[in-house]
């Protein structure tokens, strides 16, 4: 499917979604409430069938956090980027997708560890890299480590 067709079919499925085509891939902005529904549809819709979530990360834009999901369909060979804005930077929360793509299990734990985003219904929501009683979330822009040595 070309980017235009992809945009068309996503737009018909989710009228609330907004699009951004400045980058290499088609970016789709999804609202938090319908996020999980969108992800399920993207995975199971036979025309889209995004079976591989190859990158899952988060960006701290200081005023808000942005979850970014890169996905590809092995069958149709098209790539889509889903973005979800999390306005609550103190206690950000989002639904998990690790039952849809198993790879999300580790990646969500990583985001939880480094950004402090809590994934609801995740089976094993623990820190993955850092110590369990680590203070703060290192990849946040407001993270200050008094022991850090400036290079």
């Amino acid at each position: 499917m070309t980017t235009e067709e992809l945009k068309l079919s996503v737009a018909t499925l989710f009228p609330a979604a907004t699009f951004d085509e400045t980058g290499e891939f088609l970016n789709v902005m999804v609202n938090l409430p319908e996020f999980r529904n969108v992800m399920k549809t993207l995975r199971h819709n036979s025309e889209l069938s995004f079976d591989s979530l190859f990158c899952l990360t988060c960006i701290d834009w200081k005023t808000h956090l942005m979850m970014v999901y890169h996905m590809i369909s092995k069958q149709h060979r098209h790539v889509l980027v889903i973005k979800v804005k999390l306005d609550n930077t103190v206690k950000p929360e989002i639904e998990t997708v690790c039952d849809i793509w198993k790879t999300a299990n580790f990646h969500e734990r990583e985001v939880f560890d480094l950004f402090g985003v809590n994934f609801k219904n995740h089976p094993d929501m623990r820190r993955i890299m850092l110590d369990d009683n680590w203070d703060g979330f290192p990849l946040r822009k407001n993270y200050v480590d008094e022991n850090m040595i400036s290079l």
Binding site: F54, C55, T57, I59, D60, V68, H70, K102, T103, N105, F106, H107, E110, L139
Partner: peptide
């Protein structure tokens, strides 16, 4: 995968390495 988010400055705003081993290990 290397994912760079740039805000126009001389260093990346956010960089993410999608490393193969991290996903392979989860299996």
């Amino acid at each position: 995968g290397v994912y760079i988010v740039s805000d126009g400055a001389a260093s990346p705003y956010r960089i993410k390495y999608r490393s193969p081993n991290f996903s392979n290990l989860s299996a």
